[in-house]
């Protein structure tokens, strides 16, 4: 669609701005104290702030506690199969590039079974907000080890403690070609969470956000008792994610140039203290949808039939 036509849509949009409850569907069934509630609320606030019509947003999820989110968000939602949210999202983006997509996955969903799709989605750089709610365990299926479960923790499939060091998804993301946005935040830092999701929404490209989250039922002690005792450092930059003064009692700030890929890679590798904020942003990486759709236009029906006829000539034996 031409730029002018798009503008007309945006401009005529706001007859009445939407209220928060217009983005609510049913009451969430997550456990009390689960960080998923915060993410849902943050998402709803972002949608309201940008005054998006609920029917124009698509949320896609895999399988897991966090993947129930589309049930509770009043948009078009697709609650798919374990590990496969990203290919489905790619299909939605390719078919309807005008609809914003938010992808919600868990750590097992994205890093384990969905690993292959995760790696390639970064390279495709589809324009979508990708939130991974990382509680470092498989909670829905009742406590199995996940790729990010900390060293030595006991789960139902590792009753004597985990065998391997947890993976660092941040360094994996920074290592993939075409990475355009990486941020990390936590559900126990609600102001930071809101700002991070807002920033991710603004970015044109794959906005990968890892949201640390403590499962109150299966991992109550994780992340230093839910963030109380969890060393973090807030990355600061003029264009980065703003650090509210109240957050400073959780951790110090550090100046960070998120436009420098080498600096971002260095920060991504560090895990203690955990870097919170915008690690990397490059607004100039083209998205896969642009690359594919910019190559061609849809011919009108007459031209379509003419071209098909000419094509058929190639195979005609007179």
């Amino acid at each position: 669609m031409s730029m002018l036509a798009e503008l007309c849509v945006i401009e005529s949009g706001a007859a009445d701005p939407h209220t928060l409850d217009e983005y609510e569907s049913e009451t969430p069934r997550w456990c009390k104290g689960c960080g998923d509630h915060g993410v849902l609320a943050a998402l709803q606030r972002v949608l309201r702030k940008n005054n998006l019509d609920p029917e124009d947003v698509v949320s896609v999820s895999g399988i897991g506690c966090s993947s129930r989110l589309p049930h509770y968000l009043n948009t078009y939602g697709f609650h798919g199969i374990h590990g496969r949210a990203l290919p489905i999202s790619t299909g939605v983006r390719l078919a309807r590039p005008e609809l914003p997509v938010v992808v919600i996955m868990g750590d097992g969903d994205c890093f384990s079974i969905g690993g292959n799709h995760w790696l390639h989605a970064i390279r495709y750089n589809i324009d979508a907000v990708v939130l991974v709610l990382d509680n470092e365990v498989y909670a829905l299926t009742k406590m199995q080890v996940s790729p990010t479960t900390p060293d030595g923790w006991k789960t139902n499939t590792t009753p004597h403690g985990t065998y391997l060091q947890p993976m660092n998804p941040l360094s994996v993301v920074m290592g993939m070609t075409n990475v355009s946005f990486l941020a990390q935040t936590a559900t126990w830092l609600p102001a930071h969470l809101d700002e991070t999701i807002e920033k991710a929404w603004e970015h044109h490209g794959l906005s990968f956000v890892r949201i640390l989250q403590r499962c109150p039922v299966f991992m109550p002690k994780a992340f230093g008792d839910g963030g109380l005792n969890f060393p973090v450092v807030f990355l600061e930059h003029e264009d980065g994610i703003p650090v509210h003064p109240l957050l400073l009692k959780r951790g110090a700030t550090r100046a960070h140039n998120h436009r420098d890929i080498n600096e971002a890679q260095r920060v991504a590798v560090s895990v203690d203290p955990a870097p919170m904020g915008l690690l990397y942003r490059n607004p100039d990486v083209p998205t896969y949808e642009e690359i594919r759709w910019n190559r061609q236009e849809r011919p009108d029906h007459r031209t379509f039939v003419e071209r098909l006829d000419a094509l058929m000539d190639r195979y005609t034996v007179s």
Partner: peptide, 30 residues
């Protein structure tokens, strides 16, 4: 591409059908 379509080679067979399903869900049967 002359007819307004394109072929997407996915990273594996599962992603291939995933993309087709996502596109179909969004309204363009793939």
């Amino acid at each position: 591409e002359d007819f307004g379509g394109f072929v997407h080679q996915a990273e594996d067979e599962i992603a291939a059908i995933g993309v087709a399903l996502g596109a179909s869900y969004a309204g363009k049967t793939a």
